[in-house]
Protein backbone atom coordinates (compact mmCIF):
# COMPACT_ATOMS: atom_id res chain seq x y z
CA UNK A 1 0.00 0.00 0.00
CA UNK A 2 1.46 3.39 -0.97
CA UNK A 3 1.92 6.14 1.60
CA UNK A 4 -0.80 8.12 -0.10
CA UNK A 5 -3.27 5.28 0.26
CA UNK A 6 -2.70 4.91 4.00
CA UNK A 7 -5.07 6.70 6.38
CA UNK A 8 -3.01 9.45 8.02
CA UNK A 9 -4.37 8.99 11.56
CA UNK A 10 -5.53 11.50 14.16
CA UNK A 11 -2.08 12.74 15.11
CA UNK A 12 -1.14 13.60 11.53
CA UNK A 13 -4.50 15.28 10.92
CA UNK A 14 -4.03 17.42 14.03
CA UNK A 15 -0.49 18.32 12.94
CA UNK A 16 -1.88 19.26 9.52
CA UNK A 17 -4.38 21.64 11.13
CA UNK A 18 -1.65 23.00 13.39
CA UNK A 19 0.44 23.78 10.30
CA UNK A 20 3.28 21.74 11.76
CA UNK A 21 3.85 19.30 8.84
CA UNK A 22 6.57 19.68 6.29
CA UNK A 23 5.45 20.28 2.73
CA UNK A 24 5.91 16.76 1.28
CA UNK A 25 4.01 15.16 4.16
CA UNK A 26 1.28 17.78 3.97
CA UNK A 27 0.83 17.29 0.22
CA UNK A 28 0.66 13.51 0.64
CA UNK A 29 -2.06 13.82 3.27
CA UNK A 30 -4.00 16.37 1.25
CA UNK A 31 -4.01 14.04 -1.76
CA UNK A 32 -5.26 11.25 0.45
CA UNK A 33 -8.00 13.44 1.90
CA UNK A 34 -9.23 14.35 -1.57
CA UNK A 35 -10.22 10.74 -2.11
CA UNK A 36 -11.08 9.51 1.40
CA UNK A 37 -14.48 10.44 2.85
CA UNK A 38 -13.89 9.03 6.39
CA UNK A 39 -10.60 10.91 6.75
CA UNK A 40 -12.14 14.12 5.42
CA UNK A 41 -14.92 13.76 7.96
CA UNK A 42 -12.37 13.12 10.68
CA UNK A 43 -10.48 16.25 9.62
CA UNK A 44 -13.69 18.30 9.81
CA UNK A 45 -14.30 17.00 13.32
CA UNK A 46 -10.86 18.06 14.45
CA UNK A 47 -11.21 21.37 12.65
CA UNK A 48 -14.46 22.07 14.48
CA UNK A 49 -12.81 21.32 17.81
CA UNK A 50 -9.87 23.58 16.93
CA UNK A 51 -12.20 26.42 15.98
CA UNK A 52 -14.18 26.02 19.17
CA UNK A 53 -11.03 26.09 21.29
CA UNK A 54 -9.71 29.15 19.52
CA UNK A 55 -13.01 30.92 20.04
CA UNK A 56 -12.95 30.50 23.79
CA UNK A 57 -13.23 33.99 25.23
CA UNK A 58 -10.37 35.78 26.87
CA UNK A 59 -11.19 36.30 30.53
CA UNK A 60 -10.40 39.46 32.45
CA UNK A 61 -9.24 39.67 36.05
CA UNK A 62 -10.65 42.32 38.35
CA UNK A 63 -9.06 45.80 38.24
CA UNK A 64 -8.01 45.22 41.85
CA UNK A 65 -5.50 42.64 40.68
CA UNK A 66 -3.67 45.15 38.50
CA UNK A 67 -3.51 47.66 41.31
CA UNK A 68 -2.20 44.98 43.68
CA UNK A 69 0.58 44.09 41.24
CA UNK A 70 1.52 47.73 40.64
CA UNK A 71 1.59 48.40 44.37
CA UNK A 72 4.19 45.62 44.73
CA UNK A 73 6.51 46.57 41.90
CA UNK A 74 10.26 46.32 42.47
CA UNK A 75 11.36 49.16 44.73
CA UNK A 76 7.91 49.66 46.10
CA UNK A 77 6.98 48.93 49.64
CA UNK A 78 4.35 46.27 50.01
CA UNK A 79 1.12 47.56 51.50
CA UNK A 80 0.94 46.75 55.15
CA UNK A 81 -2.10 44.64 55.73
CA UNK A 82 -4.31 45.00 58.76
CA UNK A 83 -2.19 42.79 60.91
CA UNK A 84 -1.73 42.53 64.63
CA UNK A 85 0.39 45.68 64.61
CA UNK A 86 -2.53 47.72 63.31
CA UNK A 87 -4.88 46.35 65.89
CA UNK A 88 -2.29 46.80 68.65
CA UNK A 89 -1.91 50.44 67.58
CA UNK A 90 -5.66 50.91 67.64
CA UNK A 91 -5.83 49.44 71.11
CA UNK A 92 -2.89 51.61 72.21
CA UNK A 93 -4.57 54.73 70.87
CA UNK A 94 -7.71 53.83 72.70
CA UNK A 95 -6.05 52.82 75.94
CA UNK A 96 -3.38 55.51 76.32
CA UNK A 97 -5.68 58.43 77.24
CA UNK A 98 -7.95 56.07 79.14
CA UNK A 99 -4.99 54.86 81.17
CA UNK A 100 -3.92 58.43 81.84
CA UNK A 101 -7.43 59.30 82.93
CA UNK A 102 -7.59 56.27 85.21
CA UNK A 103 -4.26 57.19 86.82
CA UNK A 104 -5.47 60.73 87.51
CA UNK A 105 -8.81 59.44 88.80
CA UNK A 106 -7.06 56.95 91.07
CA UNK A 107 -4.82 59.70 92.46
CA UNK A 108 -7.84 61.90 93.12
CA UNK A 109 -9.86 59.19 94.78
CA UNK A 110 -6.88 58.11 96.89
CA UNK A 111 -6.34 61.68 98.17
CA UNK A 112 -7.87 62.17 101.61
CA UNK A 113 -9.16 65.68 100.87
CA UNK A 114 -11.17 64.70 97.82
CA UNK A 115 -14.20 62.47 97.49
CA UNK A 116 -15.98 61.03 94.49
CA UNK A 117 -18.79 63.53 95.15
CA UNK A 118 -16.26 66.32 94.98
CA UNK A 119 -14.97 65.13 91.61
CA UNK A 120 -18.53 64.76 90.34
CA UNK A 121 -19.26 68.33 91.46
CA UNK A 122 -16.16 69.53 89.68
CA UNK A 123 -17.20 67.74 86.49
CA UNK A 124 -20.64 69.30 86.85
CA UNK A 125 -19.05 72.74 87.03
CA UNK A 126 -17.08 71.97 83.97
CA UNK A 127 -20.13 70.87 82.08
CA UNK A 128 -22.02 73.99 83.09
CA UNK A 129 -19.10 76.23 82.24
CA UNK A 130 -18.69 74.55 78.88
CA UNK A 131 -22.28 75.23 78.04
CA UNK A 132 -22.16 78.79 79.34
CA UNK A 133 -18.80 80.00 78.21
CA UNK A 134 -17.84 77.94 75.25
CA UNK A 135 -15.12 80.26 74.07
CA UNK A 136 -13.09 80.10 77.25
CA UNK A 137 -13.61 76.49 78.08
CA UNK A 138 -10.10 75.35 77.30
CA UNK A 139 -8.55 77.85 79.69
CA UNK A 140 -11.09 77.07 82.36
CA UNK A 141 -10.61 73.32 81.90
CA UNK A 142 -6.85 73.61 82.19
CA UNK A 143 -7.08 75.82 85.27
CA UNK A 144 -9.56 73.60 87.06
CA UNK A 145 -7.62 70.42 86.33
CA UNK A 146 -4.49 72.21 87.44
CA UNK A 147 -6.19 72.88 90.75
CA UNK A 148 -7.21 69.26 90.96
CA UNK A 149 -3.64 68.23 90.32
CA UNK A 150 -2.41 70.53 93.08
CA UNK A 151 -5.02 69.39 95.57
CA UNK A 152 -4.68 65.71 94.79
CA UNK A 153 -0.93 65.65 95.31
CA UNK A 154 -0.07 64.83 91.68
CA UNK A 155 1.60 68.18 91.22
CA UNK A 156 3.42 67.77 94.50
CA UNK A 157 4.57 64.30 93.50
CA UNK A 158 5.63 65.61 90.11
CA UNK A 159 7.63 68.39 91.73
CA UNK A 160 9.23 65.92 94.12
CA UNK A 161 10.22 63.60 91.27
CA UNK A 162 10.47 65.85 88.21
CA UNK A 163 12.55 63.36 86.23
CA UNK A 164 10.05 60.55 86.62
CA UNK A 165 7.12 62.88 85.96
CA UNK A 166 8.75 64.12 82.77
CA UNK A 167 9.58 60.58 81.66
CA UNK A 168 5.99 59.48 82.30
CA UNK A 169 4.64 62.41 80.27
CA UNK A 170 7.03 61.70 77.40
CA UNK A 171 6.14 58.00 77.46
CA UNK A 172 2.43 58.74 77.37
CA UNK A 173 2.90 61.24 74.58
CA UNK A 174 5.11 58.87 72.57
CA UNK A 175 2.67 55.99 73.00
CA UNK A 176 -0.19 58.18 71.83
CA UNK A 177 1.62 59.60 68.81
CA UNK A 178 3.18 56.23 67.90
CA UNK A 179 -0.16 54.49 68.05
CA UNK A 180 -1.76 57.17 65.96
CA UNK A 181 1.00 57.00 63.32
CA UNK A 182 0.91 53.21 63.10
CA UNK A 183 -2.84 53.28 62.78
CA UNK A 184 -2.62 55.90 60.05
CA UNK A 185 -0.06 53.81 58.10
CA UNK A 186 -2.19 50.69 58.40
CA UNK A 187 -5.62 52.09 57.80
CA UNK A 188 -5.33 55.22 55.76
CA UNK A 189 -2.06 55.26 53.86
CA UNK A 190 -0.79 51.75 53.18
CA UNK A 191 1.54 52.69 50.33
CA UNK A 192 2.58 56.23 51.10
CA UNK A 193 6.15 55.46 50.06
CA UNK A 194 5.05 53.79 46.85
CA UNK A 195 6.70 56.24 44.47
CA UNK A 196 9.92 56.64 46.35
CA UNK A 197 12.17 54.46 44.19
CA UNK A 198 10.36 54.19 40.91
CA UNK A 199 10.84 56.62 38.06
CA UNK A 200 7.80 57.37 35.95
Amino acid sequence: MSEEAEHPGAEALQALLDGELDQPRRETIERHLAGCVPCSRELRDWSALFHALEELPELAPSPRMRENVLARLPGKRAPTPLRWLGWAAAMGLLLTPSLGFLLVAAAIVAHPLLTLEGVATLLGWQLADFARENLTWIARWAMEWGLVALESGIAEAALSYPGRAFAALVALWAAFVGSGWTLYRNLLSPSRTANRHVQV
Binding site: L56, E58, L59, A60, P61, M65, R66
Partner: peptide, 10 residues
Amino acid sequence: LERYERPVFS
Protein backbone atom coordinates in the same frame (compact mmCIF):
# COMPACT_ATOMS: atom_id res chain seq x y z
CA LEU B 1 0.76 44.22 32.75
CA GLU B 2 -1.99 45.67 30.57
CA ARG B 3 -0.81 43.63 27.58
CA TYR B 4 -0.61 40.31 29.36
CA GLU B 5 -2.94 40.32 32.34
CA ARG B 6 -5.89 38.95 30.35
CA PRO B 7 -4.04 36.21 28.41
CA VAL B 8 -2.21 35.07 31.53
CA PHE B 9 -5.37 35.18 33.63
CA SER B 10 -7.30 33.27 30.93
